[in-house]
């Protein structure tokens, strides 16, 4: 018993010491937790070895290095990503969030850092006019819950089509290629890398559609100082070529704003 008590005491002392040392050593450095919805290829996804990678991960890390912050990525599903920020589970969202009026009521957006169109994806031989309500009548359409694509489809075709909402983008693609949905409406690069490049016989259907403004990092409304810092760093990266280098790694075309 005595042994056990002294062992526990030592263990406790050791942990508290290490905690203290940790807190002391990096006390000066700004610590940030960044929320990201994974997978959303090519913006954020897991490499075969399990590490996080993607355009936004690289860009986010570059911004962190620029503002001398120690950053930790937190994986959070999309439908709870804004409530999680407001509940202070992390300090910012850097996860392809399009700047919209509706969202700007809840969060503070940084300057935009990329812009991409949305597009429909389905079987390549599918001949359907995706702008017509009649053509989409009764079709099963997959979207990711709470995205601007969800809002667009719900507003335009919600009354005639069967809209299926998914929590993650990979489940959405799985059900399209499995044949449970006829069409999905996704951010173009995401559909390009998860549908067209990975599964045979699927293609973008119809014209690309530009929804909303650029994507921005989202902060809590009162964190204006942090947002300012972030904007400055982002601007510098866009000018000094770091941004372009990262973009070239993932895209054959420009998404820069």
């Amino acid at each position: 018993m005595k042994k056990l008590v002294s062992f526990l005491a030592i263990a406790l002392a050791a942990t508290s010491m290490s905690l203290f040392a940790d807190g002391h050593g990096h006390g000066e450095k700004l610590k940030l937790k960044i929320a990201v919805d994974v997978p959303y290829e090519p913006f954020e996804f897991k490499a075969p070895d399990g590490s996080l990678t993607g355009f936004e991960i690289d860009l986010g890390n570059a911004v962190c290095a620029e503002i001398m912050a120690e950053c930790e990525w937190v994986i959070q599903s999309w439908d709870g990503i804004i409530p999680g920020l407001l509940a202070r589970k992390y300090d910012l969202i850097f996860s392809s969030m399009s700047i919209t009026e509706e969202r700007a009521k809840k969060v503070l957006f940084s300057d935009g850092y990329y812009i991409t169109p949305s597009a429909w994806f389905g079987k390549a031989d599918m001949n359907v006019d995706v702008t017509s309500k009649d053509a989409l009548k009764g079709k099963k359409i997959g979207v990711q819950r709470g995205t601007i694509q969800d809002t667009y489809v719900t507003e335009n075709f919600g009354s005639v089509a069967d809209v299926k909402r998914y929590t993650t983008a990979d489940d959405l693609v799985l059900d399209l290629t499995g044949g449970r949905t006829d069409l999905v409406f996704l951010d173009f690069p995401v559909g390009e890398s998860t549908v067209i490049k990975k599964v045979e016989g699927y293609a973008a259907i119809g014209e690309q559609i530009q929804l909303g403004e650029a994507a921005g990092a989202a902060f809590r409304q009162r964190d204006t100082e942090l947002a300012e810092k972030f904007n400055k760093a982002l601007k510098k990266l866009k000018e000094n070529g770091t941004y372009d280098a990262i973009m070239k790694k993932y895209f054959a075309y420009s998404i820069k704003v």
Binding site: W78, D79, G80, I82, P83, L86, K106, R145, G146, D150, R165, T167
Partner: peptide, 14 residues
């Protein structure tokens, strides 16, 4: 619960 999640995602009001 699905309905609640839709409303949650739409209004950010858990």
């Amino acid at each position: 619960t699905g309905a609640a999640r839709d409303i949650y995602a739409k209004y950010y009001a858990p």
